[in-house]
Design a protein around this nucleic acid. Structure first.
Lengths: 115, 115
DNA sequence: CTAATATGCAACTCGGAGGTTGCTCTTATG
DNA sequence: CATAAGAGCAACCTCCGAGTTGCATATTAG
C-alpha cells in the first residue's frame, strides 16, 4: 500500500474540481440545464438562441463531455448531445458531505459556548 | 429562443456559475474542505503544507471570498479566513433540482416506452 | 447530380487566471 | 527599541480558455 488515505481524497478532490470547472461557465451551465430538461439536441439546435458561434458552443460541449457531464452520439449528419447525471450527482453528494461537516463544526462550537 | 422568466433564471445561473468557477480549482477546493472542517485559519497556516507561495494562496482565498464562500477577519497581525456555507448550500440545492428534473425526464420517457 | 445543412478541424487573437518575486507596512516578541 | 512574523501591494511572466474566421468533409433534400 503506497497510497495513504489522503491520496485518495486528493484524487476525488481533483475530480470534483474538474467537474466544477466544467460547470463554472455561464454558457456551459446553460447548456447543462437545457440538456437536463429534455431530449438530446444537436449542436445547431443548441447554438440557436445563443449569440455565439457554433464552434464556440461545440468547444463548450466538448469540455462538458470531457468532464463526463454529457455525451454525444452521432446520428446521420448531426451529433446529438445528451445529459449524463452521474458527475452532478457525485458533486451533489460531495457538497452534502461538506455541509454536514460544517454543521458538525457549528454544533461542537455551540456545545463549547454553552458549557 | 427567448423563454419567459429566463432573465431571473439567467441571473441565478450566472451566480451558480461563479460559485462553481470558484470551486473549479484543486487548490481552492482543498482550501474550502480544510476550512469547512474546522476553525478559522490564517494565511500562513493555510500556506503551510502547500508547495505554493503565500501570495498564490492569498489570491485563491480572495477568489473564494469574492464568491462568498469564505470571509476574512483581521485579527492582530494575521487575517483569519472562515468558511461560509451559504453559497455551497445554494449550489447543493440547485444540483438537487437538476437531478430531479432529469429524473422526471427519465420517468416520462419510461411512460412513453411502456405505452 | 447539386445544393444546402450539420459538423469537424486548424490557425489565430485576446484577455485574464495562476504563479512568482520584491518591497513595504504593521504587529508581536525578545 | 530591534527584530522577526504575518500580511498587503504591485509588477511581471507564462499559459490556457474563450471566441472567431476560414476551409474541408459528410449527409440529407430536391
Amino acid at each position: 500500500m503506497s497510497r495513504s488515505g489522503s491520496d485518495l481524497s486528493a484524487a476525488k478532490r481533483r475530480h470534483h474540481a474538474a467537474v466544477c470547472a466544467a460547470l463554472g461557465d455561464e454558457t456551459r451551465l446553460s447548456l447543462v440545464t437545457t440538456l437536463s430538461r429534455g431530449e438530446p439536441r444537436s449542436i445547431a439546435q443548441l447554438t440557436g438562441g445563443s449569440r455565439m458561434t457554433r464552434q464556440a458552443i461545440t468547444k463548450h460541449l466538448r469540455v462538458l463531455e470531457s468532464a463526463g457531464i454529457v455525451h454525444s452520439v452521432r446520428s446521420g449528419r448531426e451529433s446529438r448531445f445528451e445529459f449524463d447525471p452521474q458527475p452532478l450527482n457525485e458533486l451533489h453528494e460531495y457538497l452534502g458531505r461538506v455541509s454536514a461537516q460544517w454543521d458538525q463544526v457549528l454544533s461542537r462550537l455551540k456545545i463549547l459556548v454553552e458549557s
